[in-house]
Design a protein around this nucleic acid. Structure first.
Ligand SMILES: NC(=O)c1ccc[n+]([C@@H]2O[C@H](COP(=O)([O-])OP(=O)(O)OC[C@H]3O[C@@H](n4cnc5c(N)ncnc54)[C@H](O)[C@@H]3O)[C@@H](O)[C@H]2O)c1
Ligand SMILES: NC(=O)c1ccc[n+]([C@@H]2O[C@H](COP(=O)([O-])OP(=O)(O)OC[C@H]3O[C@@H](n4cnc5c(N)ncnc54)[C@H](O)[C@@H]3O)[C@@H](O)[C@H]2O)c1
Lengths: 210, 210
DNA sequence: ATGTTATTGTGAAAAATGGAACAATATGAT
DNA sequence: ATCATATTGTTCCATTTTTCACAATAACAT
């Protein structure tokens, strides 16, 4: 089984680049075009494809549409992915209003919040009370949740979400959460990303001076 | 030079865990405490420290306050980091209102937008017209920018930011940008993070069934 | 038809990363 | 004072990831 997160991220990048190339009228692509597009090497593109049994044509490169089909299938994009948001505050509601997920076949179908003032059943994306989450997840067969509650509530909310049957959490709170057995947690940690960027800017600055 | 992004991210995690431990009244810590706290191995904690010449005491572990000092210095947290936001839309203004950066010594000092309607000089964090960005960056010695403009404008905005003298960009647009020489670009790509999560949820589900 | 060329697919080499093991040693117990 | 113990720092080893290199071969040119 493939456990290499970076490899899967590269597949997503290839897919995105392919859509752009397709929009530009291209119908086939070579490994080094893709490498350029995503900032990698041609070898790695071919190796990545080879891992998943994707093959192209000697001297002919890859047919973009069939390649996209295969990547989309690997990435689970052959069906609409329904996602919920837990915590309808600043970040949560920005995400619920964001239209960019649609083109990716991802749909935020509801938000949940502990604060009665945030409840709104008539929104395009309704915001529902926490108590309904378990039933909603079951009825609508939801597997993925975005967690956007205050830091202090994050672990507790994660436990609750896991108990409701969610299988994957994208966590925006800047702390590590323990997921229940069988629930995967990925983190989007803007603080750490900034810190990281600052570090690398600092070191390149220092080494340039030296 | 250290080029391992994961290693630096771990340093950030150690630092965050140390603050939590400190708040709980601990004054020293062992490598395996930290390993537990961030979900790694004790070996790796010690190795990470060793890379940066951080040493503890045989049988005595590490003094939390001095350890924090060293980590903070490595991570550039011994001085306030001033950051600007380019694109004061949904994400951009959520970030500008977000108070979580302060405790990390990161301050968003201004936003910039192309839309005159977004300009507001009397905000706690002012939003200024694009034309002023170059002068602002120079005067205030800004090195880091968060990029939150629409996808279509992202590359152009990145070029402009680089030209203005910015050294590091945290890009929220879901596409790869080419940075000018001497400007580092890191990406926060929520779509790809979700896709990734969906992939891993799918494969673990499949392998469990088999 | 034949030869030339461009590009893939992959096996082998290299580099990077992570983990285990253990000698060195400071601390605390007897 | 001596010993036992716990923990670091670092070396060595295993694994993972990336890159290299090239044989295989499909497309194209002559
Ligand atoms: N706002 C940002 O720009 C930003 C940036 C980076 C990280 N974050 C992180 O994202 C998280 C959310 O930040 P925010 O600014 O949106 O906060 P917020 O306070 O605006 O929103 C949090 C929402 O969660 C709800 N909530 C609280 N406890 C809950 C629970 N147990 N279950 C369900 N809902 C609950 C609150 O009612 C509120 O609506 C925080 O962890 C924050 O650190 C935010
Ligand atoms: N909103 C979300 O939840 C979300 C989630 C993931 C990714 N993103 C990405 O973040 C980026 C911003 O999204 P958003 O929802 O905040 O968009 P938005 O349309 O709300 O805001 C974009 C802002 O950028 C300004 N702008 C446009 N061109 C500019 C330029 N050249 N220079 C400076 N400012 C300019 C616009 O005036 C607007 O205020 C997009 O790339 C989007 O794909 C957003």
């Amino acid at each position: 089984m493939i456990t290499n997160k970076n490899c899967i991220i590269r597949l997503s990048r290839y897919k995105n680049a392919l859509y752009r190339l397709q929009a530009l009228g291209f119908v086939k692509v070579f490994s080094d075009n893709l490498a350029d597009a995503v900032g990698g090497t041609a070898s790695q593109v071919r190796k990545d494809f080879s891992i998943f049994g994707i093959s192209g044509n000697k001297k002919g490169g890859y047919q973009i549409d069939s390649l996209l089909e295969k990547l989309n299938s690997i990435l689970g994009k052959d069906q609409l992915q329904k996602v919920i948001v837990v915590g309808a505050g600043h970040i949560g509601s920005a995400l619920m209003r964001y239209r960019g997920f649609e083109k990716e076949g991802i749909k935020i179908v509801a938000g949940f919040d502990i604060d009665p003032a945030k409840i709104n059943r008539s929104n395009p994306t309704p915001v529902l009370p926490l108590e309904e989450i378990k039933a909603f997840v079951k009825t609508n067969n939801i597997r993925i949740a975005i967690l956007a509650v205050p830091d202090i509530a994050a672990q507790q909310a994660a436990d609750m979400i896991c108990a409701a049957g969610i299988k994957g959490i994208l966590n925006f709170a800047p702390l590590g959460l323990k997921g229940a057995e069988g629930c995967i947690i990925n983190n989007v940690n803007v603080e750490i990303e900034l810190e990281n960027l600052i570090y690398f800017v600092n070191v390149t600055e220092k080494t340039k001076k030296a």
